[in-house]
Design a protein around this nucleic acid. Structure first.
Lengths: 338, 338
DNA sequence: TTGTATGCGTTATCAC
DNA sequence: GTGATAACGCATACAA
């Protein structure tokens, strides 16, 4: 079968311990090192990671949650980019990334916890958690090194990485104001999402700065999807809609809104502004009229991974340190500038 | 620290072996089983997976390659869905899914091989491989259980799962022919991709069936992207373009083409037909005129995973069996029907 | 049915 | 600088 460290040792006429030293760059006389290395070559020997991890009691795996959904939703689309960022950091630390399927239904999200308790992962990055407080409690209970990407209740001492939701939509609305618009509609996502609350706050903040009051007729709460944006815009149009520009929670909604305008033969305004870390990569390409505020997705991945590794390293010595991080946004005004 | 199987044993006043039997559902007297289970409860004991995997010499991990790219490309977008399918199967087998970052540059794609040889993964699913023949050779050399999603040189005895590329574009063009079109343009991807060759063959096949010859002026080879489609259509329009319908390699190209028509104030034809397993999830929503042939992405994931597990189970006993699989396509003609 | 003993492949602690 | 030996936590062959 596969050759072991002992096979190498006997071929090189040394002890297994010395072979181990070579493998781990411990001091060994150059001459014996050569002998051992040639034996390794000859036997085509690879150390057994299972054994290594077992003795060190480190899995060298971090978990990343993936919500189980049927079909593709807008939220899923940035996952690959996020993963790219996480993978890059993990690779540099000789860590592997393990995907953890997670039901939205919360109750049985203990897979992550199980894996940690069984030493299958050393820590975890949690993507876009639903309001899954029970998971967070278990994370704290078992001191699981973890970083959440997205927003969670602020009183929980868990590190988070997120885009600056308030600032994002603030910038978007500011952009419209600068173009001279006074009546700016807002297509909001359901306000029970914390991110949605934040973005709405950004909308309010921008208007407030210009002394413009909130007009409830210009605000609608819909699902954060293409359909939501589409239906929302139809609803706007059904009433006496007097806005000259529209801002939306994310670009999926914005595209839906634009589609509704098209279907009603209304000239697409050049002033739809959007924030989304659920940026549809095609949106800006298709609609030059659409201005978007991009979240630095890949950076969120690397940042989260870096935080996680820092936590894993410190956890033994010191106590957990909470580190909520907000990342800067990038602006893009249509395809031309991309 | 963490309690071990021995702690449980001594608390339950039995031997570690008996505890192990309970853990693995081996026959144990009901009474002692109860004792042990309550001890497990009391100690909050979880078996150490690192040790279990070590003794069984099974990692309980399968690898899935992820190409390292900067930013998001169309190809990446179906990865989350594919992963959903893979994860579902793996979960049922009590396996974890490990992501393997893979450079396009080929040369150092040995990470997958290394992981296998070091017992860190028991098999792998390779997504959308570039013409990375050296990787395939290593897979064969080390008898790595592996399934490729996408097309590879047919002479290699490696299981593959793919969409039926010929059939897909054949169906798309058939659709246009049925609408009465005689002059159908084709925006091809670079023909050094095998998938691209197949799709082109499908285009030819559909036309041939209707006794329509190939008109080279109606065919263009561009990058398989939004930009490629856009530029291609511009190039068509610059000449004496006389097609009444357009088919494209994938929907990214189709959307690009439509955009070019829009920009030139040309009424969008209702006859852009497309095949793509790189379906942009938004494309059909945005353009009802766009007919697409969908690949069953999630099914590709589950199919590949099932094949892989079958291979892993058989490999010990019998020899590797090659199993190229082609999956059926789904048709969708715009948002209204979705 | 249960206990004893051994081994898995590696690292670490101690001598030398 | 190197070798013998123990230890990691669990599963299993064998004995009882």
């Amino acid at each position: 079968m596969k050759s072991t460290i002992r096979d190498v040792a006997s071929l090189a006429k040394v002890s297994p311990a010395t072979v181990s030293r070579v493998l781990n760059n411990k001091p060994v006389r150059e001459q014996t090192k050569k002998k051992i290395e040639s034996a390794i070559q000859k036997l085509d020997y690879y150390p057994n990671m299972l054994a290594q991890n077992f003795v060190s009691n480190i899995s060298y795996h971090i978990g990343v949650t993936m919500t189980e959904r049927k079909g593709l939703t807008a939220v899923d689309q940035f996952n690959p980019v996020l993963l790219q960022g996480i993978l890059e950091v993990a690779k540099n630390k000789n860590y592997s990334v393990t995907l953890i399927p997670t039901c939205e239904a919360a109750e049985h999200n203990n897979l992550l916890v199980d894996l940690f308790r069984r030493n299958a992962i050393d820590g975890a990055i949690i993507l876009d958690p639903s309001d899954n407080t029970s998971l967070f409690f278990e994370i704290l209970k078992y001191k699981i090194p973890a970083v959440v990407i997205g927003r969670i209740p602020t009183n929980l001492p868990i590190s988070t990485v997120d885009t600056d939701n308030v600032e994002g939509i603030y910038l978007a609305v500011k952009h419209l104001l600068r173009l001279g618009h006074k009546k700016i509609a807002y297509l909001s996502a359901p306000l029970n999402y914390i991110a949605s609350q934040d973005r709405y706050a950004g909308y309010q903040k921008a208007l407030a700065e210009c002394g413009i009051g909130i007009n409830p007729k210009l605000i609608l709460e819909k699902e954060a999807s293409f359909e939501g944006g589409y239906q929302g815009m139809l609803q706007f149009l059904a009433g006496d809609f007097e806005a000259t520009a529209v801002s939306a929670y994310n670009d999926a909604m914005a595209i839906g809104a634009i589609k509704a305008l098209q279907d009603n033969k209304i000239k697409i305004p050049e002033q739809v502004a959007v924030i989304g870390h659920d940026d549809l990569p095609t949106s800006a390409m298709i609609y030059p009229a659409l201005s978007t505020i991009h979240s630095p997705i890949e950076e969120m991945g690397t940042e989260a991974a870096n935080l996680l590794f820092r936590e894993m390293e410190n956890l033994a010595a010191a106590e957990r340190k909470i580190m909520p991080v907000k990342l800067k946004l990038r602006q893009s005004c249509g395809f031309a500038t991309a």
